[in-house]
Structure formats: C-alpha cells, structure tokens
Simulated assay, not measured.
Amino acid sequence: MKRIKTFPYLLLQVISLFFLIMLLPTACKETENNKAPSIAGYYKIESLYADRQVDLNNDGNVSTDVMEEVSRNRFNRQYNFDSPSAYMEIRPTKHNHTTHQYLYVPFPDPRLTFEYTDSPNGAVTYLRNELNGIGYKYSYDEKNKLIYIDRTDVEEKNEEFWGQLVDMKVIEKDRLELLVSKNYYDFVTASWIRLQLTAIYVRVED
C-alpha cells in the first residue's frame, strides 16, 4: 500500500529547500573570493639590470646586465634562468591549489669562495634562493591592476640576507616588472654591495 506523505513531512521538505536556496548566494560568493587572481601562474625572468656597473663573475669586465654577468660565470654549475625551478610562482596555481595568495621569487644568490688556486681573488657560485627566504603574501586589485605586497609578517633581517622584493607591478598583459634590493659581490671593488635591480618577467605555460 502506497504511503501518503503527511503535512509535517512536506513542511520539512519545504523548509530544507528554503535554506538550500538561501545558502546558494553565499556559496557562489565564497567560490568567487577563492578564485585565483588573473596574474596567478608562472613567470620566467626576461631581463635583469642593476643600478650600476659591476663585475659579478670576476672576468674583469663590468656591466649592468646581471643575467649576463651570472650566466657567464665560469664557476657557475647550478644556476639556470631557463629552468622551471627558476620561474617565479604566483599562487594559487593549478599545481598548488591553496587559497592563499603567495609570491615565490627565486633569485640568483651568490656564494663566494677563495678555494680555487686559479682564482686567488675569489670565485662565486650562484645558487637559487627565494627573496625574503620564504616569499611574500600579496593581494591583487583586478580593476586597477595593482599588486600589493603584504609585509605584515616580514622580518627585516630575512630581506637583508636573502634579498627584498621592493615593488611589483603589471606593465602589460602577462608581463611584470619587479624592483629588487639584494647584496652581490663586486670583484672590481672587492666588496659586497647592495644592488637595486629591475627585473622583467613574462608569463609561461603552466
């Protein structure tokens, strides 16, 4: 015998449906808030220039082109600007599904040694380390295309040691300009100096 649905049962169904409809706008809003910013993804460094001429590879020549100085280092065996591991990562990405907006900026990090007998005035190897050691939180204004670096939890000593991301901006679609402050060893002056660097990054396929 077919069961007849009672009024309380039907009322419960109506109430459940009502609450489900009420929750839909909230769910949609949360999905929208967690959506990755349009700038999220991977970026390859295209150019990197210093604010002064330096000799970063001990070849006797000075230049403002830091990519050339680092790439022509005869002791360099580890740093490769074209490697995916050297790409800047603006999270969230499809490989990192976190809802947190985070910047990871690998940068050539100098390690000076005087162990080589054929280079008594020193030799440098460039490793790959993140600016600020662990990167930065950020937010992005889609309407005005402005990137804001969150320095709330940033410690000055980390930026001093690993390098500081001073500013970051969109210059055109899929191209970003970064201003970086970082210590490098200049073989002309035989001293560590704080360079102010301008880097251009271009988006690459994930």
Rank of each mutant, 00 (worst) to 15 (best):
T152D: 11
I200K: 03
E205H: 10
Q78A: 14
Y148T: 15
D59Y: 05
Y126M: 01
P8T: 13
G135Q: 04
E156T: 11
D150F: 09
G133M: 09
F81A: 07
F75H: 10
L146Q: 14
S38A: 12
K5Y: 13
Y148K: 15
Q13A: 15
A27P: 00
E156Q: 12
I200C: 03
I45A: 04
Q101I: 03
V70F: 01
D206Q: 14
T99L: 08
E159N: 07
Y148I: 10
E68G: 08
F187R: 01
K137S: 11
S38D: 12
L12F: 12
L17R: 11
L23F: 12
A50E: 01
I4H: 15
Y116Q: 13
P110I: 03
T93L: 06
D118F: 09
V124M: 06
K94Q: 12
R52T: 12
N34E: 09
N73Q: 06
S83L: 08
F18A: 14
V170F: 03
R52C: 07
N144E: 15
E30D: 09
D55R: 01
I134C: 06
F107M: 11
E68Q: 12
L197W: 02
T6E: 13
F161H: 11
T113Q: 11
E89M: 13
Q53S: 11
F187L: 06
C28E: 12
N129A: 11
E46N: 10
P84I: 09
V170D: 06
E160M: 07
Y126R: 02
L24N: 10
